Computed example of a mutant assay.
Amino acid sequence: MPTTPPQSRLLRFLYENSLLLLVALLVVSTLVGQAFTGWHEYNTDLEDLHLAPLTLSQYLGSGHFLEATFENWESEFLQMGLYVVLTIWLRQRGSSESKKLYEKEEVDQEPDPTKDDAPGPVKRGGWQLALYRRSLSIAFFLLFFASFWLHAKGGGRGVQHRADAAGPARRWYPGVHGHDPVLV
């Protein structure tokens, strides 16, 4: 690891943003993988039901893709949000993520608004400081609720797509895969 900043702008950018860039690459890679495998799986299901397969662009706008993506994200954001909130108050002996059991830590001290490098909410105090202190858990729970909504929206779209494809006389029951359609 360099102790002085790299001279090249590109190397400096890569060094200073390496975490963001790697996480973005992993997210995009898994979304691409999920898109192609989900597309193949969904078209196989549609063919089993004697329905026309979707193009990749149609699949990306389908309820199946939305539901599959945000079902996974929903559980992850809830888990991480709960983990953040619970580690504020709870402790675990031997855990490197936990606060010390019987000692005060620097993180428990009130932030100093007079420091030059103090963030704006720390300097302003009041409701902005309260929001800033809880911003990570708020962000995770907002992401959870957004994922929950998109998961539900995707599920509804998937049911509607099968109903539209089947025609107005039939409605498909989404829980039955690989079997004859069930009238609802």
Rank of each mutant, 00 (worst) to 15 (best):
K115A: 15
P111C: 08
V84D: 09
G61C: 04
F144W: 13
Q109M: 13
V184T: 13
A166P: 00
Y132S: 00
D48V: 05
T114Y: 03
E67D: 06
S95D: 11
L51T: 03
V184P: 07
F141H: 09
A166N: 12
Y132G: 05
T69Q: 06
D48C: 09
A163C: 13
L136K: 15
I138A: 08
P2F: 15
V27Y: 07
Y42Q: 09
W127L: 15
W127A: 14
Y42W: 06
P113E: 00
W172Y: 12
P174K: 07
F13S: 04
Y83E: 07
E16L: 11
P53M: 07
L19C: 13
Y132F: 14
S29N: 07
K99C: 08
V107M: 11
L66V: 00
L21R: 03
T37V: 06
T69E: 05
V27C: 08
L49T: 02
R124V: 07
H151P: 07
A152L: 10
G38A: 08
S137F: 01
V85D: 03
A166F: 02
F13E: 04
L86V: 01
G167I: 02
P174A: 06
A68R: 13
L136M: 14
D180G: 14
G126K: 01
P119D: 03
V176E: 09
G61L: 04
K115N: 11
K123V: 01
V32L: 10
V176F: 05
R133S: 08
